[in-house]
Amino acid sequence: MSERTMTDDPFVVHRRLLFTVAYEMLGSAADAEDVVQDTWLKWTAVDQAEIRDPRAYLVRMVTRKALDQLRVLARRREDYVGPWLPEPLLTSPDVAEDAELADNLSTAMLLVLETLTPTQRAVFVLHEVFDVGYDELAEAVDKSPAAVRQIAHRAREHVAARRPRGIVSSTDAWDALIALQRAIVTGDLQNLVDMLAPDVVALGDGGGIKQALPRPISGAAKVAKLFAAGLKAPWLTEMTAQLGYANGGPALFFRLDGELDSVVTMRVEDGLISAIYTVRNPEKLSAMATETSVSR
């Protein structure tokens, strides 16, 4: 295939969009990539001259495949050891500049989406995030336009009731992660503890492979105690902690002997840390090797 033909191929043009749709539906970079690759194989077998709207056609293909995969993942997650968190993505600083995209990719939002049914999640992601019309959505999820409108309405209400209501600031998130980084270096936790919201929750995902929190820890006092105990862990002195971007926002990357050990992100609302997410499951960190391109 010539360079010009490859560049003009609608799949290549929209690949970042297709991956982003699949990732927001699945919360798994590896599964999203599988869905995109499967879509590519099916796309090459299609008579593309007959496709009037390649973007819509490709999004529809990805959505149907992701819906199938969601149902498989739902069964798999019933047996997951400990709290489940989405696979983090290494993203560029440019993604953080798109506040809406960054919020939709955030761990907090992906966890809210996990509470939707597969069809609700597909409809919400495609309509609210990617502005796909109801008629096109109806084809993607095999429902009538009227049914899709009702599903979208219920999904919006469900998400609105569960998503954070406070002002989320990337700058405050940076300050919180810097405070954590400084606490690790100096052993002084006070600045970090002062930033904890009364109802802060900490979640850790080790997948039964790495040690992590077996259940969510809630409340400022308990989370502060958790931090204090963590700073005394002998292995912590062997780690390096570097700031970067994951899922469109600030993140702290812990490395041991040069290998990525864990990724920490935080949700900060009105200047206070409301949630702390730590992913240690090595099977979920493979996507962090290279920067992921995402788009709306």
Rank of each mutant, 00 (worst) to 15 (best):
A32S: 09
F124E: 02
I51Q: 05
P83R: 11
P88L: 09
R16P: 00
E97W: 02
T44I: 12
K65G: 07
S92K: 12
F130C: 00
K65Q: 11
E3H: 15
H127F: 00
M6A: 06
A66I: 05
T63D: 11
V62G: 07
S106T: 07
W84K: 05
F11C: 08
R16D: 10
L58P: 03
L116V: 09
R64I: 00
D31I: 02
K42E: 13
K42W: 00
K42R: 13
V36C: 11
V129P: 08
R76P: 03
E78G: 14
L58S: 02
D8C: 05
L58I: 04
R76Y: 06
H14K: 03
L70Y: 02
Y134E: 14
H14N: 05
V12F: 15
Y80S: 00
R76L: 04
Q120P: 04
R76V: 01
A99E: 10
I51P: 10
V46N: 04
R77H: 10
D47M: 15
Y57E: 08
V59H: 01
S92D: 14
N104M: 07
E136S: 14
T119L: 08
V95C: 09
E33T: 07
A49N: 09
E87Q: 11
R64L: 07
R15A: 13
D135P: 03
M61C: 01
L110C: 07
D135K: 02
A96N: 07
Y134L: 10
D8L: 12
M6C: 05
V62D: 00
P86W: 14
W40E: 13
R55T: 02
L111Q: 13
E24S: 04
Q37C: 03
E100M: 03
A32V: 11
A74D: 04
D135M: 09
A32E: 06
